[in-house]
């Protein structure tokens, strides 16, 4: 089964996704993997990671840090049943899109390079997650709702938003269930292409 979990900052999406991963893994007695896409740059990041680690503690997740080329995480997994929790698409997208340095000769090439980078990022992540999905029993992907502040940002941030929107739509199309977490409450968005009613989401 594949589930896409979305939510805003401080919505409780991680806690929900972990609980879900545990339930699904237990059901079929699979190993549990936590794919962390976040890169740590400062103390605030460290605190964030520590909070997430504390949430997962004792739940039996094997953590794999994989900031880019997400499918390479598969090389670090055992064979057999796998429940994979991938967190999160916003970091993975930023890492793929903004890592590495590029030089530009003029504004035109800057624009072209930017657009190409965004397209490549969508394709890379799409293929990476497709491969993970093929090779796991259950896949839960956490993504962020970063789309509702109504602010027009600089062009590269807008490219990032577009790329994330495309990736989220692709993941939702693949997913058996899409859940939005609001104030800690899971709200069904879609369920296997059906009407997505609440009862269909309780397991």
């Amino acid at each position: 089964m594949m589930v896409l979990v979305i939510g805003g900052s401080g919505s409780g999406k991680s806690a929900y996704a972990e609980e879900l991963a545990c339930t699904l893994a237990e059901r079929e007695d699979t190993a549990k993997y936590y794919l962390a896409a976040m890169q740590v740059f400062d103390q605030e990041d460290e605190r964030r990671v520590a909070r997430h680690r504390a949430l997962r503690k004792g739940k039996g997740f094997l953590t794999i840090e994989q900031p880019v080329r997400i499918e390479s995480a598969l090389d670090k997994m055992e064979t057999g049943g796998r429940t994979v929790l991938l967190e999160c698409i916003s970091n993975l997208t930023a890492n793929e899109m903004f890592s590495g340095t590029q030089t530009f000769s003029n504004a035109q090439t800057f624009h072209e390079t930017r657009v190409r980078k965004a397209e490549e990022t969508v394709e890379l992540i799409r293929q990476g997650i497709a491969q993970i999905r093929r090779e796991t029993t259950h896949l839960i992907v956490v993504s962020n709702n970063v789309f509702e502040d109504g602010i027009v940002y600089d062009p590269s941030t807008m490219d990032y938003l577009d790329a994330m929107g495309k990736i989220n739509r692709q993941l939702a199309a693949w997913a058996d269930r899409v859940v939005e977490v609001v104030a800690g409450i899971p709200v069904p968005v879609a369920c296997g292409g059906t009407d997505g009613n609440r009862s269909a989401l309780s397991w």
Binding site: G8, S9, G10, E44, Y153, T157, A183
Partner: peptide
């Protein structure tokens, strides 16, 4: 909480703690 992560630390704290 449904937007781009703000640049300023206080704005991030405000979003997170409200959530």
């Amino acid at each position: 909480g449904n937007g781009i992560v703000p640049m300023e630390a206080f704005e991030r704290k405000y979003r997170e703690r409200t959530g």
